[in-house]
């Protein structure tokens, strides 16, 4: 009896938690879909339906180029970061790299270092390189800032693979690179995809770097930056349109999340869930 009551209470708590987690996101969606004169009621019940806000946000905020820019940045960061992380993680886990422990120790700094701690010199550096207001200004630093996470991630993953696997490959005469691509990489594929997803998430959602490094070029503004300008510049303007803009920015990730949520959650929890 006792456990049955506990079960009901537990599920009730989970339902309440779910409502709290989803309510702000849903209320902005409902607002975005509502007509100006017929906003949702206090409890968020919709009273009208229109796609008008989306059309106005899309044309007014330059979100077509912003989404494209975000996608370019995020994909580039993911491809390079994951490739470099796989190579380095593999070497540190399975090869006798000189000073390997030192290298890992140094990379540890990157795991806890906030972007905010390096943003001022980073801005000067990018300026000196002549890259301010270019897509590269967003891609290059984000690779540097995410490889430490990637290397630790892949290092842990490769270390979890039984030793017999690469050993058997090397007995069969495989080179180191072949051992990596033909044997270890397939075995580590779930880890690689989870890493790719979180790096994508961070790159897509980044705001500070974009604000500082591409402030004046409308063409390379990322989606979150465009949203910030859009929401800030039109303070007196229609909140429904701003809401629609927010939905536009969030939607691509929400769609990816819908299909790959298990990988996302695993990634964000640092693999803590499955272990």
């Amino acid at each position: 009896m006792r456990s049955r009551r506990e079960s009901v209470i537990s599920h009730l708590i989970l339902v309440i938690g779910t409502i709290i987690a989803l309510y702000p996101a849903l209320s902005i969606l409902i607002l975005a879909l509502s007509k100006r004169g017929a906003r949702p009621s206090a409890l968020g019940v919709p009273r009208s339906f229109t796609l008008d806000n989306f059309a106005r946000a899309w044309s007014g905020g330059g979100f077509d180029s912003a989404l494209l820019s975000s996608a370019t940045v995020a994909f580039s960061v993911v491809v390079v970061t994951v490739t470099l992380s796989v190579l380095t993680g593999y070497a540190l886990a399975w090869l006798r790299v000189p000073m390997g422990a030192t290298i890992l120790g140094v990379l540890l700094i990157g795991l806890v270092l906030p972007y905010e701690g390096v943003i001022v010199p980073l801005h000067s550096l990018i300026k000196d390189m002549g890259l301010i207001n270019t897509t590269a200004a967003l891609i290059l630093p984000q690779i540097g800032l995410s490889v430490s996470l990637g290397v630790f991630w892949m290092h842990t993953y490769f270390r979890g693979i039984p030793k017999s696997l690469p050993e058997a490959a090397s007995i069969d005469g495989a080179s180191r690179f072949q051992t990596l691509t033909k044997v270890l990489l397939p075995a580590a594929l779930p880890g690689v995809s989870a890493l790719a997803l979180i790096v994508f998430l961070y790159a897509w959602n980044d705001f500070l770097l974009a604000l500082v490094l591409v402030p004046d070029n409308v063409d390379v503004r990322t989606a979150p930056l465009s949203l910030s300008f859009f929401a800030g510049n039109v303070k007196g303007a229609d909140i429904g349109v701003t809401a629609a803009a927010a939905v536009i920015v969030a939607l691509p990730l929400v769609i990816v999340y819908f299909f790959l949520q298990r990988n996302f959650i695993n990634g964000l929890l640092g693999g803590a869930v499955k272990e």
């Binding site: 607002l31 959602n205 929400v254 999340y257 996302f264």
Partner: peptide, 21 residues
């Protein structure tokens, strides 16, 4: 799990816009 994680995948800017409302 999936629902409770939704706040994690939204950009800080989107979160800010939602809560401002």
């Amino acid at each position: 799990r999936a629902a409770l994680f939704v706040p994690q995948i939204l950009s800080g800017v989107v979160v800010a816009v939602a809560w401002r409302y």
